[in-house]
């Protein structure tokens, strides 16, 4: 068993672009095993926060710290699924195989892992099909399978169902639950309250680049503290 990279500490994170501050002094500690949902209206800064945490963006100030390991080593224990799945121009199987090869797994060892990953996504009989002709739901499941295949300790998901219909959304949420059950920590964004209720153990509520609340999902939905969160829960439009 490799040592855990959690908890993840976001320490006074700030992010500026074009002279504007988009993320303000965001401080939070995220522990292992939970399903954390970054919740908030469009433009709240959820995606930026996720990309900062995963290391795709560098903070303008503040820091992202993983437990006990270098940023490089910690990155190898993470995976991310994006709102619009990025499919390589190859077969479904080759998409998974590529992710495994980047982790330095030999060709022989990869084959059964690819098969297993596709089976877990219900894509077993589409292995040879070009990933880019799959439906939106199948593509997102393939993206999840690809992320799961590398056996991450932390899985980031950025609005993974925003472009999907209810049936495909359900399939994706079931896969997320399975990945969580297999031991991964889930850190996910959504603007969908229903999804947050279904998935979250813990809520980080963001508004205009500020972290307004961090609490268990139960507490958040029962007794939100900030006026913004109360309005968001009531379904008022926030901007």
């Amino acid at each position: 068993m490799t040592a855990s990279i959690l908890p993840l500490v976001l320490d006074k994170l700030c992010f500026n672009a074009r002279g504007e501050r988009l993320i303000h002094d965001l401080t939070a500690t995220l522990h292992g095993g939970t399903r954390t949902i970054l919740l908030g209206p469009n433009g709240a800064g959820k995606s930026l926060t996720l990309r900062l945490a995963h290391g795709l963006l560098s903070p303008s100030s503040g820091s992202v710290r993983w437990e006990g390991s270098s940023a490089q080593a910690a990155h190898e224990r993470q995976a991310m699924v994006f709102q619009r799945p990025v499919m390589l121009r190859r077969s479904a199987a080759a998409n998974v195989d590529y992710a495994l090869s980047l982790r330095g797994i030999g060709r022989r060892a990869r084959r059964p892992l690819v098969e297993e990953a596709l089976a877990r996504a219900g894509l077993g009989d589409m292995a040879k099909r070009s990933a880019r002709v799959l439906s939106a739901g199948e593509q997102q499941r393939l993206a999840l399978a690809r992320a799961w295949a590398v056996n991450p300790e932390v899985l980031f998901l950025d609005e993974p169902t925003a472009n999907l219909d209810p049936a495909a959304t359900r399939a994706v949420e079931e896969m997320i639950a399975a990945i969580h059950e297999s031991g991964a920590t889930i850190i996910m964004t959504t603007h969908d309250l229903g999804q947050a209720r279904r998935v979250a153990d813990e809520i980080l509520f963001l508004h205009r680049g500020h972290l307004m609340e961090q609490m268990t999902a139960e507490t958040f939905f029962a007794r939100p503290q900030s006026a913004e969160a109360q309005a968001f829960l009531k379904g008022d439009l926030l901007w």
Partner: peptide, 16 residues
């Protein structure tokens, strides 16, 4: 432009 986030997330360096 299309791939960079995904490839960097998977751990690919630009050279790779």
């Amino acid at each position: 432009d299309e791939y960079s986030d995904q490839l960097r997330s998977l751990g690919a360096t630009p050279a790779r």
